[in-house]
Amino acid sequence: MSGARYIIAALVAVAAIWEFAVIVTGVPRYILPSVGDVMVAFVNNWSLIGEHLIVTLTEVVLGIVIGTCLGCVTAIQLETSRAARLFLRPILIFSQAIPVFALAPLLTLWLGYGMISKVVMAILIIYFPVTSSFYDGLVNTPKSYLDLATTMGTTKWRQLFLIKVPAAAPSLFSGIRLAAVYAPIGATIGEWVGSSQGLGYLMLLASGRVKIDLMFASLLTLGVMSMGLYAIISVTLGRLSRFNG
């Protein structure tokens, strides 16, 4: 069976268990709607869900792009400058000790209810994994490559960009794959805390109006969006890294 068939089989199995649980337990629809109810809610509200999906997707993609760029710059700073290592590492570790959930209300207060506070949430949540994985890749460049470069008479920066950065690419790519999974979490937390758009906002709105089927439809859309994003990033990075050893 191919990979796609396994995924479809798993989804069908989950849907069957869900449907079975609803029928057997007789749980009310406003607690747990059936799969059919959720599908109907999705079809009836596809335009509304699509509108909010675009907002969340934009926040997530911007978060991944900006967070990855910032993470790369920081990792290079850490690798090339001892002063940066001494100064930035404690700040980085401290920033990870604070739960992002705790920062969401502050970011909303400072940056408003618009998209910026959600993008910043996504950036904050992916910044550390990207920085950390890329930095690890840079410092773990095989010493033999660096020895060869030394005998060839190179400079520190050429060695960085021609040897270390390509050698660290697989580690960076692992960080970006993690970012693809974490960024939707950051954006959704931001939307829950304060927003007027996005799938997180739609889920809260539906929950408040006891439209649990719409809430589930939004939740499933968020899940599919995250999986799709991860798949696209994963396949693209896989193609880029197929020559890296």
Binding site: Y145, D147, L148, A149, T151, M152, G153, T155, L162
Partner: peptide, 28 residues
Amino acid sequence: VSYMAQSDLLLPWATICDNVGLGSRLRG
């Protein structure tokens, strides 16, 4: 001095052409 080791030390992401001309690129 140039150096040839037990391991070929070829960069896996670069073509053979780029690997052979690596020294020039590393010196700019």
